[in-house]
Design a protein around this nucleic acid. Structure first.
Lengths: 232, 232
DNA sequence: AAGAGTTTGTGAACGCGTTAACAAAATCGA
DNA sequence: TCGATTTTGTTAACGCGTTCACAAACTCTT
């Protein structure tokens, strides 16, 4: 489970963007796309920050890691900034991903519209269940898990998505890594161990709801001495 | 968008658990459940931390916010600790949620097995599309968005899930809040604004993949001067 | 009963991320 | 041209979270 620390600046260009910033850049990108669609040509950090739901100072600091793409006294050129962020995020190319586990969630992911416009393309679907293999989901034929190596190699896929039950996750991760995948998005409710050099991100649906339930409990709970929290 | 700061300790009991800790408690819970199933009666912080994928010191500090439920020189009683965390997380009751937007993702969520064992129950499905209203998904009849108020009131639902396209998200959030929902899990690729007192968590599928793509780009990119990163 | 060995709970140091505050740099108007 | 205004880029302070390190507390063996 590599963490990929990088904020130390290298020799020449100011490389190495903090993880927290990297996680927000796609949000800025989405806001800039929306502005482009509205025909807005330029904007200030305050406007953009509002649309992205962050503090303006944070936005400016984030952008400063990429370079100086704004103009003092004026703001940012929407199209120029959008391109710079997209380039930094690697969106000048399309990243092909393979989804493993074509149950309800895997099917939903393969049909998800939001990927295509963001440099992500679902290139292959894989399942271990023979009954599912050969069927068509979202225009793609589901392949057997046994063919994973060939599929990853043929299309030089480097990103895999695990959408299997929890007890299959580790096994699937092992096969993805063996096939050459070096980044994994794990939706299964289980930890997966991977060798150094492989990135794993985890999205856990029930954990998110449990966190909400915790806060909910505290709201309806004992103390209402803090009526509604002044947030001005 | 309330942030719910609470780490300041109140009067009597040590209330107020840091957000980062709250986010990890469900993970510990899952690990403890696995241990119970394996018939393990007690464990050390090192063992549990390993199963949860965190640093042992972090685990102990997290648990210390709840109280002193371990025994020095011995470890933690699995069942006892599991109960204490579950109680703190509000899992002694079932939290009913309504899912809005029964497309691919909404259907997948309503069929998700992992919720039931974690104090979450999908109690109602709602969609704006008349063609979907009345159909049965995962054993539940899809209701009209117009009936949201009655549904939320009848079952005293306090948690809503938005699984609509991005451009419908704000409108749905408004209606959820108006109906009385005070916690929202938003899967739509859009920011939603809510009044104080309402919690929103956001899960963005394409953002997760874009973050992976960024790291992937840097791996295959320029510098291979850091061959595989010693992680010992 | 006492010492050796374990393991928790926590105080303290450290590091990252956020935010405020301001100087630098651009535009605009007179 | 020069001052007023706007807005970026950046430095510095602050706060939260993580991790180390160790004392306190428990068990076990002799």
């Amino acid at each position: 489970m590599t963490i990929l620390r990088s904020p130390r600046l290298a020799d020449g260009t100011a490389r190495g963007i903090p993880d927290a910033t990297v996680a927000r850049l796609p949000v800025y990108l989405r806001a800039l796309n929306a502005l482009t669609e509205q025909g807005v040509g330029s904007c200030s950090s305050i406007e953009l920050a509002e649309k992205a739901g962050v503090n303006p100072a944070k936005l400016r600091k984030d952008l400063s890691y990429l370079g100086s793409y704004g103009t003092r006294g004026v703001g940012y050129d929407v199209e120029y900034l959008r391109y710079q962020i997209a380039r930094e995020m690697g969106q000048t190319q399309d990243w092909e991903v393979v989804i493993v586990g074509i149950g309800n969630l895997g099917s939903a992911l393969s049909a998800y519209q939001g990927f295509s416009t963001r440099g992500i393309r679902v290139a292959a679907l894989v399942d271990a269940d023979p009954q599912r293999v050969g069927s068509t989901v979202s225009g793609l034929t589901v392949s057997s898990l046994d063919d994973l190596d060939a599929i990853v190699a043929d299309r030089s896929i480097s990103i895999g998505v695990i959408a299997t039950p929890g007890d299959a996750a580790q096994q699937v991760a092992d096969r993805l890594v063996a096939a050459g995948v070096t980044s994994i998005l794990n939706f299964a409710p289980a930890l997966v161990q991977v060798p150094d050099g492989v990135d794993v991100r985890k999205v856990d649906l029930s954990v998110e709801l449990q966190i909400l339930a915790y806060h909910e409990q505290r709201k309806t709970g004992t103390d209402s001495k803090e009526p509604k929290v002044s947030n001005a």
